[in-house]
Amino acid sequence: MHHPHLSRRGLLIAGATGLAAAGLPAAGAAAAPAVVEPDIDGTREWNARPPNGTVRVLSQRPDKIIVHHTVSANTSDFSRAQAHAHARWVQDLHLDRNGWLDTGYHFVNSRGGWLTEGRHRSLSTLQAGWGHVMAAHTSGQNDRAVGIANEGSYHDGAVPPAAQWEVLVTLCAYVCERYGIAPHRIHGHQDFGDTLCPGVLQDMLPRLRQEVADRLP
């Protein structure tokens, strides 16, 4: 299947002015909706540290997505450089404080809508549409769920910026398409443990599932 490809700026334009501005079929058009492959900066691009051991790739497809927030500052710096700095902050936290193998999430979505690969090998595995990188984001679900973290703290009434939301929808739709995951299997961290994560994003899950469903053929 051919995946129409937009740049990051194209994704932000699509979020701000609608799919038509990005050259995608308008709502109600006869053509099936396009599943956009989002740009994701790999671990090499954001200068990740090497993992503290071997990253396992399981010979199975994940069956769900779990949404998180990183409980970092709600910065107004929406730049790619900030996204990279935040990815390094998350990895340092998980390696040095938690003692984990690598970043616990598969992907991290910045407040400016810039995506970074979290745990090594997550991007290539997603693009292949088969296999699953064993991660460390949700107890009991790490062998079967794609973990997507959103930069920021959303348990105190704050809401994600428009660009971050748009790219979250785009990434979730792409993950669902590549792995054959139904939109109703998009969850929040709270569904699997006693946690405030992902804050208001938990309440926004019905909207997220619907918007993802609208992107899928």
Rank of each mutant, 00 (worst) to 15 (best):
T116S: 12
T116L: 06
T116D: 01
G118L: 06
G118N: 04
R119G: 02
H120T: 04
R121C: 05
R121M: 03
S122I: 01
S122C: 02
L123E: 03
L123V: 01
S124R: 01
S124G: 08
T125Y: 08
L126P: 00
L126K: 00
Q127I: 01
A128M: 04
A128D: 07
W130D: 13
W130C: 09
H132L: 04
H132F: 05
V133A: 01
V133T: 01
V133W: 01
V133C: 01
M134R: 13
M134P: 03
M134H: 14
A135T: 11
A135D: 09
A136F: 13
A136P: 09
A136H: 15
H137G: 15
T138C: 13
T138S: 14
S139I: 14
N142K: 05
N142P: 07
N142L: 03
N142E: 14
D143Q: 11
D143C: 07
D143F: 09
R144C: 14
A145Q: 07
A145W: 08
A145N: 04
A145F: 07
A145G: 08
A145I: 09
A145L: 10
V146M: 09
G147L: 12
G147W: 12
G147R: 02
I148K: 06
A149Y: 07
N150G: 12
N150D: 11
E151K: 03
G152D: 07
S153G: 11
S153K: 12
S153T: 15
S153E: 13
Y154P: 04
H155E: 14
G157Y: 02
A158N: 13
A158D: 12
A158V: 02
A158L: 06
V159N: 10
V159R: 13
V159H: 07
P160S: 01
P160G: 05
P160I: 13
P161N: 03
P161Q: 04
P161V: 00
P161W: 09
A162K: 13
A162Y: 12
A163Y: 11
A163C: 11
A163G: 14
A163E: 15
A163W: 12
Q164Y: 09
W165V: 10
W165L: 14
E166I: 10
E166N: 15
V167W: 04
V167E: 08
V167Q: 10
V167H: 08
L168P: 01
V169T: 02
V169W: 00
T170Q: 05
L171K: 00
L171G: 03
L171S: 05
C172D: 06
C172T: 03
